[in-house]
Amino acid sequence: MFWPPATPRPLPAVKVWDVVLLIVLFLAVGLVLGALQAPLAEAFGKELSQNGLVPILLLQSGSLILLVFLLIVVRRRVSWSDLGFRPADRAWYRIALAGGLLCVPLVALSRLLLEPLIGDDFQNPQLEVLGTGGFDWANLITLLVLVGLLVPFTEELLFRGLLYPLLRRRLSVVVAALLSAVCFALLHWIPPLVPAFTLMGVILAMAREYSGSLWPPLIIHSLFNCVNLITLYTALAMGQAG
């Protein structure tokens, strides 16, 4: 096989309603924080908080990790290792690094193929928000920590740590990967990019399935976000210099 086999392990014993509740609460917290963006920006300072973006990411991600701890780890007695935070075969870390870099052109290509349908003037609103303040080293480093590490951690915990294993207990690898990927894509709230994010979600789910760990998909996801963020800020720096 191209990839090293994972050691067979039981899937975490989470319930359907646990995952549904977590997704609903995650969305609800995001909506509430989105409505409070202006007050948060004023409270933390518009420049320091990236116009409220930094506290929103911190609070939403922190709330999900806390909810998983209370509802899954404590209430269901499921360990973090059971959720997937356990070592993988060393070869998987090399595969994950290559996969993270490969996902950048793959996702870009899938968006390019859809350009006739979505229009060539479409701009990713996430990138627009992340680049609002222009180039600044402090902003870049802060976002690399949040968008490059914390956000992928929480999303992998929710989608590949909880949702995918739940589906996998009942469905085949392909169907479970596709369904979890579609949910992952839809929850980004950018309809034109649903196919691109679905492709990304399938890759992440496959890495979770065949590595037996959340670390490889987390590395892929984190590297993908970091590369895109650095590319954005490089473009902003060149624009300011020009």
Rank of each mutant, 00 (worst) to 15 (best):
W80R: 02
P55E: 05
R160D: 05
L143Q: 15
P12Q: 07
D89R: 13
E155T: 10
A181L: 01
G34F: 08
A108M: 12
I56H: 01
G99Q: 01
I203C: 10
F85V: 05
Y210T: 06
F184R: 03
S81T: 13
G212W: 01
F197A: 14
L218Q: 10
L97F: 09
Y233L: 06
S172R: 10
E155Q: 11
V16C: 13
S222A: 15
S180G: 15
Q240T: 13
T7G: 07
Q240V: 11
R94I: 15
L163I: 01
G100R: 06
S180I: 03
V194N: 03
S110P: 01
N51F: 14
A196K: 05
I118W: 13
V173T: 15
V104I: 11
L109R: 00
R9N: 09
V54C: 04
P39N: 08
F69P: 00
F69H: 15
S63D: 02
I190R: 11
S211M: 01
Y210E: 09
A176I: 11
V174T: 11
E115L: 11
N225G: 08
V175D: 09
V16G: 15
Q37Y: 04
R76Q: 10
F224T: 10
G100D: 05
P8Y: 01
L117G: 09
G52Q: 08
Y233I: 06
S172K: 05
V19Q: 10
G34P: 05
F184D: 06
I118N: 07
S63C: 11
T231I: 07
D89F: 03
E155R: 07
L40E: 03
L97I: 13
L179Y: 06
G30A: 03
F135E: 03
C103D: 08
G242C: 01
A241E: 14
W215A: 09
A98E: 07
P165A: 12
L71M: 13
P125R: 11
